[in-house]
Amino acid sequence: MAEVLTTDSMAAPYGIVAEFDTPAATMHAAEMIRDSGFKRWDVFTPYPVHGMDEAMGMRSSRVGWFSFIGGVTGYTTGMIMIWWMNAIDYPIVIGGKPMFSPMSAFPPSYELTILLGSFGALFGMLFMNRLPRLHHPLLKYGRFKQATHDKFFVVVETSDPKYSAVETRRLLESAGSKNIEVVEE
């Protein structure tokens, strides 16, 4: 028994998990964590809770920049590619039309805009979320699967500079959580 305890205490804690029963209580807890100045923490709910982004103090997502840059890249690539192929590399006169016209080059460029724009959105989202990953410490916590059913969780990571094993637990208790656990790495 003593041996088990030592190995347990040797594994580094990942974070502290507090369980809530209602979205209102979770929102309130999120506001308290936000106002205490925590940086590395998250909220898990079975469904999207409107206003949670504000309660968590989240800024507008930066994924949009990835799709914008992807779209601009796609459009310029399409235009330059068609211009180079039709007007420089292998010019053929068709119907007396100019070698290069932005009109005829527009549809493929437009499609490349959409393609690379959506690639930017998808891969930007994966990159910002540090995905894909095969395992996450929270999956070791048995009750956590209730996050996809009827429970709400607030997780504060131990790597947060403000984290304190005693103070953070007290804060989550004062937010009304009845079930608080420390999850290991």
Partner: peptide, 12 residues
């Protein structure tokens, strides 16, 4: 607006 122009431009 572009589609209208493009179709007419292309058919010439």
């Amino acid at each position: 607006t572009f589609a209208q122009y493009f179709i007419i431009w292309n058919a010439n």
